[in-house]
Simulated scan of single mutants.
Amino acid sequence: MPTITAVHGDITQQQVDAIVNAANNAMRGGGGVDGAIHRGGGRAILRDCIERFPDGLATGDAGWTTAGDLPARWVIHTVGPNYRAGQRDRTLLTSCYRRALEVADELGALTVAFPLISAGIYGWPRQDAIVAAIETITGAATRVVGARIVAFDDATYDQVCEQLSAHR
C-alpha cells in the first residue's frame, strides 16, 4: 500500500517518477491540468500521445508517454468521467486511479503524483473525488511506494489533508 501525501503546489513541478495527467479522450492536450502538463513538458508529450494513442483513450483507462521537459520521467494519462456531461458512474473515476497505478507498475515507477481526477472542469464533486482517490490508492495492490495528491489551491489542499487524517 502506497504512503499518500497531500502536496500544495503545481503537479508539473513534482520530483517523482511519474505524474498523472487528467486527460481528455482525444489525448491531444486541453485545459486545466492537461494543458499545464502539455505546456510544461513541451512538444515531446504531444508527439508521444499522437503516436501511442492515435484513436485517443477510453474513459477510465490509462496509458503513458514521456514527460518531455518535466522533472518526472513519465506522464501517465488517464481519462476521467465528465460529471457535467452526465458521466456519473463512480467506477469510471476509481478505474482511473487503479489503471494509473497499474501503468506505474508496468513502468517500474515507485513514486507517483496525482491530481484530483475529474474534480476540475469535469465537475466531479470535490469531496467525493478526494475520497475516491484515497480509497482507491490505499486499496490497490501496487509496487508504488509513494503517492502524492497534488492540490493547486488552499481549500483543496486542506480538504485532502482532512480526509487523509480521517482515513488513517
Rank of each mutant, 00 (worst) to 15 (best):
A23F: 07
P81D: 01
A22C: 06
A85S: 11
W74F: 13
C161F: 00
A85F: 05
T65A: 12
R99Y: 00
V112A: 03
I134R: 01
A36C: 14
A133S: 10
A129F: 09
R126M: 14
I11T: 06
D69A: 15
A119G: 06
P2N: 07
N24I: 05
G63Q: 05
G32E: 13
E162L: 11
H167E: 12
V160Q: 08
G123K: 00
V16N: 11
S95M: 03
L164M: 08
A140G: 12
S118D: 09
T156F: 10
R98L: 07
H167Q: 12
A129Y: 07
P71D: 08
A23V: 04
P115R: 05
R47Q: 15
A26M: 10
I4K: 04
P115S: 06
M27D: 07
C96R: 00
Q87R: 01
L70C: 07
D158E: 15
A141F: 08
I117P: 07
V112Y: 01
R143T: 14
P54F: 08
N21H: 05
A132W: 00
P115E: 05
V144Q: 06
G139L: 06
I37S: 09
A23T: 05
D128F: 03
Y97K: 03
E51S: 15
T94Y: 01
V160N: 09
V75G: 06
I19V: 15
F152M: 09
